[in-house]
Design a protein around this nucleic acid. Structure first.
Length: 293
DNA sequence: GCGTCCAGGTCTACC
DNA sequence: GGTAGACCTGGACGC
């Protein structure tokens, strides 16, 4: 399958926009030219896909033995369009960037699209797994979750588990087997809320709510604080919040404070000038060296 | 080998 | 509303 790409689409910048490419089921190859993942089309149909770019075409190869209907192929393509933010217009953002010399590299590179998971549920779980721990532990937790509760779609390649599957496990089991510690009750509560239809996440991707309202909706999920909600909003295409974490603090102090510690309030104030795009400007600035190759 | 600190924070109780 | 303290885990580091 192929998808025609917009002119300014940068595949490498998109998949390496943040750490998601490194968390299963995502996997990127060393040459940074291919992205692998597993997309669940139903409870029983899990598709291993290899995604790469050839000229202006995105090429999708299904790597496991599943037969897809025309409708399923369309759903798969739409899911990938959404993951890679292909249909998201960044024209306004690029116009803003062109006004400042230190941001001109962004439109020039075609950077600014942020990789997201096939579902908001997967994004939220992974975001909770990034909190208060090293990246190594985030990887351990995500790997354990997919390996122990996901479906093996191809040899040693597992899907991201459904909330119903996780909801059946006990808090003790999750603590021990997933190594997620105190995050276990948060994960369990989220999965049970979805299973019991107390919360519906996926419609939030196309919500008419304001960013502020969406922020508080996300904050109502236990385990999702200011940092996590701010970054989840970016994955929903809203860039009004910065999602400041230790990485942002460290990079900002190097870029704008000669290595001195800068308060969160001062960081917020600095990016205020960029209005509704401030979260994306901030992310691009602190990860600018990731886009150099 | 052991202890301590810290890492892509959040929640709750208390003031 | 602001803040202190607790919370799991694992890797890095110093001794």
């Amino acid at each position: 399958m192929t998808i025609q790409l917009p002119q300014n689409f940068n595949f490498t910048s998109t998949i390496f926009s943040h750490g998601w490419y490194d968390l299963p089921p995502f996997a990127a190859n060393e040459t940074k030219k291919q992205l692998h993942t597993v997309i669940s089309l139903s409870k029983t149909k899990h598709v291993c896909v290899r995604i790469r770019v050839h000229h202006a075409l995105l090429t999708i190869t299904v790597e496991n033995s599943v037969r897809l209907t025309i409708t399923e192929k369309e759903r798969l393509k739409n899911n990938i369009r959404s993951m890679l933010r292909i249909d998201e217009s960044l024209d306004e953002f690029y116009t803003l960037c062109r006004k400042e010399a230190h941001l001109r590299w962004i439109p020039k590179k075609g950077a600014g699209r942020i990789l997201r998971s096939p579902t908001l549920f997967e994004d939220i779980v992974k975001m909770i797994f990034t909190t208060n721990c090293s990246w190594a532990l985030t990887k351990i937790q995500t790997t354990n979750l997919t390996k122990k509760l996901g479906i093996e779609a191809a040899e040693h390649i597992y899907s991201f588990p459904a909330p119903e599957t996780i909801a059946k496990k006990s808090e003790q089991w999750l603590r021990k087997e997933i190594s997620c510690g105190y995050r276990a009750p948060y994960l369990l509560e989220l999965c049970k809320s979805i299973t019991n239809k107390k919360i519906e996440l996926e419609s939030l991707r196309h919500s008419a709510l304001s960013s502020e309202e969406l922020y508080w909706k996300l904050r109502s999920i236990k385990g999702v604080g200011h940092y996590a909600a701010g970054n989840l909003l970016k994955l929903l295409g809203r860039y009004d919040f910065l999602g400041i974490d230790s990485w942002v603090r460290k990079r900002f102090s190097v870029l704008h404070g000669k290595g001195r510690r800068i308060s969160d309030a001062a960081i917020e104030k600095y990016y205020d000038r960029y209005g509704t795009w401030r979260g994306l400007v901030c992310l691009m600035e602190v990860t600018s060296d990731w886009h150099e190759s």
